[in-house]
């Protein structure tokens, strides 16, 4: 007989294995995510207080996003990136830098 407690345990495992915004190409249009980034990072006319990622190279962008995700300092960028996985970050990079 299956212990009822094991069901929520395995459900939690499933959830943890899959970052929430993963498979964005299939599930969520990359455009929908980018629209939220644009609240602070406009391509043109952005604030001088917020770094522009349009001025850096694609690989630097990817590295910085991974760093934000990895360094658990509760900073705003950590909170934003922690729901992304590597596939998400690469999809964002493709969107921004292939558009250039």
């Amino acid at each position: 007989m299956i212990n009822l407690l094991t069901i929520p345990f395995f459900l939690c495992l499933l959830f943890l294995q899959k970052p929430v915004l993963s498979n964005i190409k299939d599930e969520i249009s990359i455009k929908m995510i980018v629209n939220n980034c644009a609240s602070c990072h406009l391509e043109n006319n952005h604030s001088d207080l917020i770094p522009s990622f349009f001025e850096i190279e694609k690989e630097v962008f990817i590295k910085q996003m991974i760093d934000f995700q990895t360094i658990n300092d509760d900073s705003i960028m950590h909170r934003i990136t922690k729901v992304l996985n590597l596939e998400d970050i690469r999809a964002l990079a493709d969107y921004y830098y292939e558009k250039k």
């Binding site: 644009a38 609240s39 602070c40 990072h41 406009l42 006319n45 952005h46 604030s47 001088d48 207080l49 917020i50 900073s75 705003i76």
Partner: peptide, 20 residues
């Protein structure tokens, strides 16, 4: 220092969203 960094983030967000 970290509270002050959030001051800059807040101001930056406000500048951007009002420009947008």
């Amino acid at each position: 220092l970290q509270r002050n960094v959030e001051v800059e983030h807040s101001k930056g967000w406000y500048q951007t969203i009002t420009k947008e």
